[in-house]
Simulated scan of single mutants.
Amino acid sequence: MKKEYQFKLIEGQFAPSEAGKVLFSLINSKINFHNLEAFSSRIRYNEEDSHSKNRLESLLDASEYIKQLIDEASSKGMGLRIDSVIQIVLTSKVKTELDV
């Protein structure tokens, strides 16, 4: 039986400055996570974590695009509507380096 859960993470209308705070908090948290993962892989295994490297590139691109949207909204006196749902699905156990 597949178990799936959804939670509304963000929902509402925001001024550009508020939207920036909310969105960049999330993105910066993910950037920090992947930076730590990449650093850990380099220290532990002397190899690059390609998944974290790819995610970092995607997150940095998203960050730049979001900055442009916020700047545009700000310059035009507009707000931003943000809706974000997080979906969680329980799956079989993923092997980690601790399981090996």
Rank of each mutant, 00 (worst) to 15 (best):
Q6R: 15
L9C: 07
L9W: 10
I10K: 04
I10D: 01
E11Y: 07
E11D: 14
G12I: 00
F14Y: 14
A15I: 04
P16H: 08
P16R: 07
S17R: 07
S17W: 02
S17N: 03
S17T: 10
E18F: 02
G20E: 09
K21S: 13
V22P: 02
L23A: 00
L23M: 03
S25M: 09
L26F: 08
I27D: 11
N28F: 04
S29F: 07
S29Q: 13
K30L: 11
N32S: 02
F33D: 06
H34N: 04
N35V: 00
N35W: 00
N35E: 10
L36I: 10
E37I: 08
A38D: 13
A38W: 15
A38R: 15
F39R: 15
S40T: 10
R42M: 12
I43A: 02
R44P: 03
R44M: 11
R44V: 06
Y45K: 15
Y45W: 14
N46W: 03
E47Y: 10
H51V: 15
H51N: 15
S52Y: 01
K53W: 06
N54W: 14
R55D: 03
R55L: 12
R55N: 07
L56K: 04
E57L: 15
L59E: 03
L59D: 05
L59R: 06
S63T: 13
S63K: 15
S63Y: 10
E64T: 14
Y65D: 15
I66H: 01
I66K: 00
K67T: 05
K67A: 03
Q68F: 04
I70K: 00
D71L: 04
D71H: 05
A73P: 02
A73E: 06
A73Q: 12
A73T: 07
S74Y: 14
S75I: 00
S75H: 07
G77K: 09
M78N: 14
L80A: 10
L80M: 12
R81I: 08
R81E: 11
R81G: 11
D83R: 03
D83K: 10
V85E: 07
I86M: 12
I86G: 09
Q87F: 13
V89P: 01
V89F: 05
S92Y: 04
V94H: 07
T96L: 09
T96E: 11
E97A: 11
E97G: 02
L98P: 01
L98E: 13
D99K: 12
D99W: 04
